[in-house]
Design a protein around this nucleic acid. Structure first.
Lengths: 140, 140
DNA sequence: CATTTTCCTATTGACATAGTAGGTAAATAG
DNA sequence: CTATTTACCTACTATGTCAATAGGAAAATG
């Protein structure tokens, strides 16, 4: 399950991509436009700043802006950063210790293949795809 | 993220499929073989019984057995039952109320397509695939 | 009737989710 | 230089789920 953290983060970045010409976009505006609690969105944006996906500038006339072009962000990296991991089962997480059943486990191949599927899906969608609505057309 | 509930349920059913000739398999044995806490496994199996995926018989000589042939169970239905849902985002859950942003949401198509992907994946794997290790060979 | 087994209810500790509250620091406009 | 706007930071809370554990009641067999 993908939580609001990841989903709001994506919507925030779409909003940035659409608004920002040159000037940074204040959080208030995005929060209102996207109908997300400002305080909560703030905590999510903090993750994006730390992860160097967006840049914030303080003070009057400040706000947030993207660091790269929308085409250069994959949805996968946004989700991986905000959700902590994109791994779908515990035994495939990066920090997971080796499972003793690993060599004989009859379910592991299924999880591995699934994990690849998920990974491939989200790392092949860019922020630009969502902004342009390109995605909507190419999908079934 | 798929929790132990779903993963243990699948392992439990694989175990049943492998053991059961005619006699029911007691929970103790599966718990030991699969190295899962008996009491915890019990709570998961209860869900499977209620969902009519397995049948339990009490008393001496009792235990659990599959109701159908392994080929007739999909992993999708096991996961959907034990995990409660296979929906990957809240707005696509069955009980979800209509999102007001639905018509204009630029992320919804992505989630929908992803949801279909997940659904298709798990509903096209049967219990028999895992038991036979067929899955292992056909996968990358 | 004793034993084995499932079936049922309740509780627990740890953690995550989805926020809220209240402030400090930076930058600009007047 | 000061008021205002904005990001930045720490802490708290309510609710829920996860992964178990505990203890017994009911059913079935030998």
């Amino acid at each position: 399950m993908i939580s609001t953290k990841g989903r709001y983060a994506i919507r925030f970045m779409i909003d940035l991509a659409k608004q920002s010409k040159d000037t940074p976009v204040p959080l208030d505006e995005t929060a209102i436009r996207q109908d997300i609690s400002k305080k909560y969105l703030e905590s999510i944006v903090k993750i994006l700043v730390k992860g160097k996906l967006v840049k914030g500038t303080s003070g009057k006339g400040g706000g947030y802006r993207l660091i790269r072009m929308p085409e250069e962000y994959t949805i996968g990296e946004i989700l991986e950063l905000t959700e902590g991991t994109l791994a779908t089962v515990a035994c495939l997480e990066a920090e997971a210790e080796q499972c003793p059943r690993k060599s004989t486990c009859q379910t592991l191949p299924m999880w591995k293949k699934f994990d690849n599927l998920v990974h491939d899906y989200f790392f092949n969608i860019t922020l630009a795809d969502l902004v342009n609505g390109t995605f909507d057309h190419e999908s079934a």
